[in-house]
């Protein structure tokens, strides 16, 4: 079973050379730590930056330079700054190749819910609805089950939706799954030490299990 860093490490392997990628808040932010040095990637931060660099050295934090998670960051050679309209313009026009974001629920049709629990939690959708409505490729980083052990991979989402039929791939602490165009979670890989039976037990939506399921490679 993977921890958060394990999920981030596995997702980092999905990033293609010479691509523009938007990383959401939470586990997706950790993905940046595991992108192999030989992979050339430009990170987009939707508050208006292309070419997001690492956190600044202690004492070098700049209040004017933050990412979408409000963390102090740095720029890199080749970085560019722009306003919020242009930022979502490049997202809507599909110039950003890959979006990685978190989710509370994903359905077997590729619907995603990640912004609201009615009556309990209202933080807002931020840029997530724009990203999922327009991204060419969307990978979701999430926990397979909630704290009560209930599946978050469902036939239909129960929470208010962020977007419909948009998620392509999911990486959880248990597995890598693809969402098929006709619906259903296709099991691609299991995490080290995780049985296919556990994944079946933890997936409430339609799960398709091929004859051969590979173990995730992380390094």
């Amino acid at each position: 079973m993977l921890d958060k860093n394990g999920i981030a490490k596995r997702i980092a392997r999905e990033i293609k050379n010479n691509s523009y990628v938007n990383l959401g808040i939470g586990i997706p932010t950790l993905v940046a730590n595991y992108i192999p040095a030989e992979i050339n990637v430009v990170l987009q931060s939707e508050n208006g930056l292309l070419g997001m660099g690492p956190f600044p050295e202690k004492g070098e934090e700049d209040a004017d330079l933050i990412n979408a998670g409000k963390q102090t960051i740095t720029t890199l050679p080749g970085s560019a700054i722009f306003d919020s309209a242009m930022s979502f313009g490049m997202i809507r026009a599909q110039k950003v190749d890959l979006t990685i974001l978190g989710a509370m629920e994903v359905s077997e049709k590729g619907d995603i819910a990640n912004w609201k629990i009615p009556g309990k939690m209202v933080k807002g959708m931020g840029g997530a609805m724009d990203l999922v409505a327009s991204a060419r490729n969307i990978i979701v980083a999430m926990q397979h089950v909630n704290k009560a052990g209930e599946s978050k991979l469902l036939p239909s989402c129960t929470l208010p939706l962020t977007g419909v039929r948009c998620v392509k791939k999911i990486v959880t602490e248990l597995a890598v799954l693809e969402i098929l165009p006709e619906g259903g979670f296709l099991l691609l890989e299991h995490a080290p030490g995780v049985s296919v039976d556990l994944i079946k037990h933890s997936t409430l939506g339609k799960l398709i299990v091929p004859d051969q399921v590979q173990e995730m490679k992380l390094d």
Binding site: P56, E61, T72
Partner: peptide, 14 residues
Amino acid sequence: EKRIEQRTSRPSQK
């Protein structure tokens, strides 16, 4: 004041 919400940094390389 320019308050910082999430002051994040990495160890100094110097």
